[in-house]
Structures are given as structure tokens and as C-alpha cells.
Lab assay of single mutants.
Amino acid sequence: MPGGGPEMDDYMETLKDEEDALWENVECNRHMLSRYINPAKLTPYLRQCKVIDEQDEDEVLNAPMLPSKINRAGRLLDILHTKGQRGYVVFLESLEFYYPELYKLVTGKEPTRRFSTIVVEEGHEGLTHFLMNEVIKLQQQMKAKDLQRCELLARLRQLEDEKKQMTLTRVELLTFQERYYKMKEERDSYNDELVKVKDDNYNLAMRYAQLSEEKNMAVMRSRDLQLEIDQLKHRLNKMEEECKLERNQSLKLKNDIENRPKKEQVLELERENEMLKTKNQELQSIIQAGKRSLPDSDKAILDILEHDRKEALEDRQELVNRIYNLQEEARQAEELRDKYLEEKEDLELKCSTLGKDCEMYKHRMNTVMLQLEEVERERDQAFHSRDEAQTQYSQCLIEKDKYRKQIRELEEKNDEMRIEMVRREACIVNLESKLRRLSKDSNNLDQSLPRNLPVTIISQDFGDASPRTNGQEADDSSTSEESPEDSKYFLPYHPPQRRMNLKGIQLQRAKS
């Protein structure tokens, strides 16, 4: 015994090295194993092979420090690593049964499904019991997946119906949107047309105001020219009257000059006056001389005659003075006559000038009245044309509004008919989907599995289990394997941990 101590140590070291070499393959693929292994699927088989106990299973599945599946799978690998070579062998058998691809990844061999460990530990009855539990578990999982698949199909059909409904609603909204954009385009076109009409109206108003201003300026210029013409006519008439007055005065002077006595007659009258003065002096001298030589009687007679002569001279002087006064009065009367005649001529000139001015103003008033009548006639014609244009424009607008209203009513009726057609199509689609759903539900009910399987069917299934373990590994792997896509769409199922009653199965096998 003492001599065998070193050999035992060498043997233990060799086993430990082999164990480390075995687990080295697992550690190399630890990331892939932790990512894809579900500990809840492996722990029943590991407990059946007595590699882990209930406490280890509870620690792996329910520990609060292991929230994710990767953490739980890593903890399970750590626990199996502590179990040595047996933990490695049982772990590979569980991978061979549940995850053939991972088994091939770790060992590089094809899975054979021999279950040597569980046969050694529990015997064939334990293997049968384990396989029966796994089959029931798989059936329950398949039923749950079928239910989930039916629910998802129903949800899918519902979503398809909602999608069709949303599509129809979208078509309806597109119809309304198209109608909205069309009405918006019509409104924009009408606004552009309105702005264009306003611009045209403004341009016409500006043109009309400009023409009116030009016409008023032309009328004012015409009036100024007419006033200048009238003033020139007035000056012409005044000059004609002055010329006529000057002509009359010149004719009067000419007549006075023609009626003036001649120079010879004046000289002859002056000679006669001198001769008479000479004779008068001679007679006076004779009379003076006679007075001195005459007697007293003759002197008395001469005195009487002288007195008579003096009286006659006085009378004559009075007559001469009277004649002079009369001549002066006649001259003054002639001057007054000439003055009055001049005033008369001036008044006649003024009267004729005023008459011509009156005629001029009368003509001017007639011209202004004619212009006013023409302006009123043009204004009435413009008003009439404007009223006709406004009436025609309003009539066109009324007809346009009428046609637009008819078009809008027809478009609304068309839209309502399209919407009604879309709604009826939606109703038809809904009815078809309901009919299809009812038909599929009836087919699913016919094809669904019963909840409680008979014992004979279970025994028959387990009677055929042994050949399947040898020759149909691919079928078992397809039913027991969970793909990543299934984990996305289906909830994980945790079967209840219970042991099955095998009395009925044993009785059935005894009868057979």
C-alpha cells in the first residue's frame, strides 16, 4: 500500500489531465453553448442521470443573480465542470439528445442517441419513463405552439383585415386629398384670375382717368384759346370803332377846312374895312368942321342928330352885343352839340362793343353748352356701355358659378359613389376574411389534438420509441430542437415537474 501511493497520485493526475482536456473543448465553445442552450431543457435529463440535484437545479433556474438565459447556462456549465468526467459525459449526452448541432460542434462527431448513462443509472424502465415524459412534454409544447400558431394566424388575419381596411381608408383619404388639391388648384386659379381682372380693371381705370385728364386739359386749352380769340375780336371791334371815330373827325375837319373863306376874300374885306374906317374919319372931320361953321339952329339939329346917332349907336351896340352873345351862345351850343355828338359816338361805340361782347359771350355760352351736351352725351354713352359690360360680366359670372356648381355637385356625387364603392369593397373584403377565418377555424378544430390522450396510444408510441432511437435521429431532433426563430415568436414553456403513473402502461404491456 505505501508503495502504491505514487502510482495512485500519477493516476489521479492523469485523470485530472484527461478531464481538463475534455472540458477544454467545452470551454472553447462556451460562448456558443451559453448563447443557445436552454438550461430548463437540460436539467431534467441531468437530474435523471443524478449529475445534479434539486438544489443545483433551483440555483440554475431560479437564482435572482442569474437574470438572463446566458448567465444560467454559464452557471450550469460551471456546476457540471465540478462534476468531473461524469458531468462531461452526461452533458454531451444531453447535447446529443437536445442540441445535435452543438454536440457536433463540441465533439466533431455525429449524434447517435445511445443514452448509456441513464440506462446504467435507471435501467430501461427509467429510460422509458424519461422518454415518455419527454414525449408528453413535446406534445404539450407542440399543442402550445399550435395554439400560439393559431392565435398568430388569427392575429395575422386580423392584421391583414386591418391592413385592407387601412388601405381602403388610405384610398378614401387619397380621394379626399386629391379632391382637396383640386379644389385648392381651382381656388388658386380663381385667385389668379381675380387678381388679373383687378389689374385689368385698375389699368382701365388709370387709362380712363388719364384720358379724362387729357380731355379736361384739352377742353381747358380750347376754352383759353376761345377766350383769347374773343379778346382779340373785342380788341378788333374796339379798334374798328376808334378808326371809324377818327375817320368821322377827319371828315369834319376836312369839311371845315373846305368851308373856310379864301385869302383873297379876307384881304378884300380888310380893304373894305380900311376904306370904311377912312371914310368914317373923313366924315367925322367934316362934321367937326361943320359944327364950327354952322348956326345955332343947325347946331341944335346936329345935337339932336348926334344924340339920335348916339342912341342909334347905343342901340346898335346893344344889338351887336346881343348878336355877339347870341353868337357866343350859338358857339357854345355848337360846342355842346359837338361834345354831345362825340359822347353819342362814344356811347354808340361802347354800345356796339357791348353788343359784340354780348354776342361773343352768347356764342361762347352756346359753345360751352354744346360742349357740355357733348360731354353729357359721352358720359351717358359711357355709363350705358359700362352698365352693359357689367350686366354681361355679371351674367357670365352667374353662368360660370352655375356651371361650377354643377361640376362641383357632379364631382361630389362621383366622390360619394367612389367612397360608397370603396366601403362596399371593404365590406366584401371583411365578409370574405370572416368566411375564410371561419373555414380555417373549423379546419383547425378538426385537426387539433385532444387534450387527454388514451393510455393505449401512449403505450403504442413508446413501443415504437426504441427503433426510432436507432434510425431516425433527424426526426427526433426536428421535433425536440428549438430554433432561434421559434424563440422569437413563441413563449418558452415550462412543464410541471411531476412523475407519471406507469401502472397503466405496465398492465397494457403485460396484456400485449
Score class of each variant (00 low, 15 high):
111 P>S: 15
128 T>S: 05
114 R>N: 06
41 K>H: 15
131 L>Y: 00
13 E>Y: 13
62 N>A: 14
79 I>W: 07
84 G>I: 00
136 I>N: 12
37 I>G: 01
81 H>C: 10
57 E>P: 04
9 D>A: 13
140 Q>S: 12
85 Q>W: 06
124 H>F: 08
138 L>F: 10
85 Q>L: 07
27 E>N: 11
79 I>C: 03
56 D>K: 05
139 Q>I: 15
16 K>Y: 15
12 M>R: 07
123 G>E: 15
141 Q>S: 14
139 Q>S: 14
5 G>K: 14
118 I>C: 15
110 E>R: 01
125 E>F: 12
89 V>I: 11
93 E>G: 07
103 Y>R: 00
132 M>G: 13
45 Y>E: 10
25 N>R: 07
98 Y>G: 03
54 E>L: 08
50 K>P: 09
32 M>W: 01
141 Q>D: 13
126 G>T: 15
83 K>V: 06
8 M>W: 10
133 N>S: 13
15 L>A: 11
31 H>D: 08
35 R>W: 05
132 M>D: 07
67 P>H: 09
24 E>M: 00
92 L>I: 08
136 I>F: 02
137 K>P: 08
51 V>P: 09
140 Q>C: 10
79 I>F: 06
39 P>N: 01
76 L>P: 04
62 N>R: 05
124 H>E: 13
10 D>F: 13
84 G>C: 07
123 G>P: 15
68 S>A: 11
40 A>R: 01
119 V>E: 15
67 P>M: 08
36 Y>V: 14
41 K>T: 11
72 R>Y: 05
51 V>W: 09
25 N>T: 06
57 E>N: 02
75 R>Y: 00
42 L>W: 00
11 Y>F: 13
34 S>K: 02
64 P>H: 12
45 Y>T: 08
44 P>V: 03
75 R>E: 04
132 M>L: 10
16 K>D: 10
63 A>G: 09
73 A>E: 03
92 L>Q: 05
78 D>F: 04
121 E>M: 04
43 T>G: 05
77 L>R: 02
55 Q>A: 11
20 D>Y: 06
143 K>N: 12
18 E>D: 07
78 D>Y: 01
94 S>V: 10
137 K>H: 06
130 F>Q: 13
133 N>E: 01
124 H>D: 14
47 R>Y: 05
4 G>A: 12
125 E>Y: 14
32 M>A: 07
20 D>M: 06
31 H>N: 05
140 Q>I: 13
78 D>M: 01
125 E>V: 13
59 E>D: 03
138 L>V: 15
6 P>E: 11
146 D>C: 09
54 E>Q: 10
62 N>L: 06
19 E>K: 12
115 F>A: 15
90 V>C: 09
17 D>H: 13
118 I>V: 15
54 E>S: 10
113 R>E: 15
75 R>I: 01
108 G>P: 00
42 L>H: 10
127 L>R: 05
95 L>G: 09
124 H>Y: 03
14 T>K: 14
